[in-house]
């Protein structure tokens, strides 16, 4: 990382204006979440986050992430292989379709699942006859979250798998490696940072999704309420401090994920100093 020739003053101006932007747009909101959360002291914060409804919401949220993230990882890697390693007509359309959930308003995303599985939806009567609950139940929340987070892993992997080329894999094949051996020994090490980054973003979004989940959850407290919905409920009950306490848990999830990413990169850089290129 060598700096380009620039006067110390220009450099200082650049760095500080970037920092001011980051501070105004990102840091201040983050800090204010924690200030509001601890306004009533640590005791009040702890009471808010250990309330049975908050704990139930936390469990549901983690459970949703524990299902959605692995599914996205598998689908993302498979999609990365098909769309990153091969050229064929229609490829750019498929990539756009994977991107599409980014472009769907979360509110609309929730509506889609109502239209599919709601009582008057396409599969609603069929499910109703069999007593199966999808919408207004954890299943519906999982499906809506899967839709919203679908692009995250694949979107990170496809460009990287394309740009890293096929030569290494082809060489491995020539040397007699099987498909899985090639994948785990050659491809995976090349994409692991992009994969990790995708997993982190996917996890963060799965945990924090509000709009889509709000439409399909039914808001039954202690049953179909996720953490972000619990925040909204508490806020609407004029319990601002409790709302921000629960929100601070979500901010912590975000921060922990980011620290994991930073540590993993650092650890790996120390082990393979020459492995820097193509990181991320």
């Amino acid at each position: 990382m060598s700096a380009r020739p620039a006067s110390p003053f220009a450099r200082f101006a650049l760095v500080s204006s970037a920092l001011v932007l980051v501070a105004l747009i990102l840091v201040l909101p983050l800090i204010s979440v924690f200030i509001e959360a601890f306004r009533g002291g640590v005791q009040a914060w702890f009471e808010a986050v250990s309330h049975p409804d908050a704990v139930a919401a936390l469990k549901l949220t983690l459970w949703v992430a524990a299902i959605v993230v692995p599914v996205n990882v598998i689908l993302g890697v498979v999609a990365g292989w098909a769309l990153g390693k091969f050229e064929f007509p229609g490829r750019s359309l498929l990539i756009t379709l994977i991107d599409l959930p980014f472009a769907v308003s979360p509110v609309v995303a929730g509506l889609l699942f109502i239209l599919l599985f709601g009582r008057r939806g396409w599969f609603g009567p069929w499910l109703g006859d069999r007593g199966l609950e999808v919408i207004f139940a954890p299943t519906g929340i999982i499906l809506a979250t899967l839709f919203v987070t679908f692009p995250f892993v694949a979107r990170e992997l496809i460009p990287l798998m394309q740009s890293s080329g096929n030569e290494e894999e082809e060489a491995a094949r020539v040397l007699g490696a099987g498909f899985f051996q090639t994948f785990f020994r050659v491809t995976l090490p090349n994409i692991k940072w992009a994969l990790l980054y995708g997993i982190i973003l996917c996890t963060a979004r799965a945990v924090g999704e509000f709009g889509a989940v709000s439409v399909v959850s039914g808001h039954i407290r202690g049953q179909t309420n996720t953490l972000p919905l619990e925040v909204e409920i508490l806020y609407n009950e004029y319990r601002t401090q409790a709302a921000f306490s629960v929100a601070s848990l979500l901010a912590c999830v975000a921060l922990v994920a980011l620290v994991v990413k930073a540590l993993a990169r650092k650890y790996s850089n120390e082990r393979h100093r020459n492995d820097e290129k193509g990181v991320r």
């Binding site: 980051v22 909101p29 963060a204 979004r205 924090g208 972000p228 925040v231 980011l258």
Partner: peptide, 13 residues
């Protein structure tokens, strides 16, 4: 690390 915060923070918050 902070850059990803908006991805992670629930939009309502």
């Amino acid at each position: 690390s902070l850059i990803d915060l908006p991805f992670a923070l629930p939009t309502a918050v």
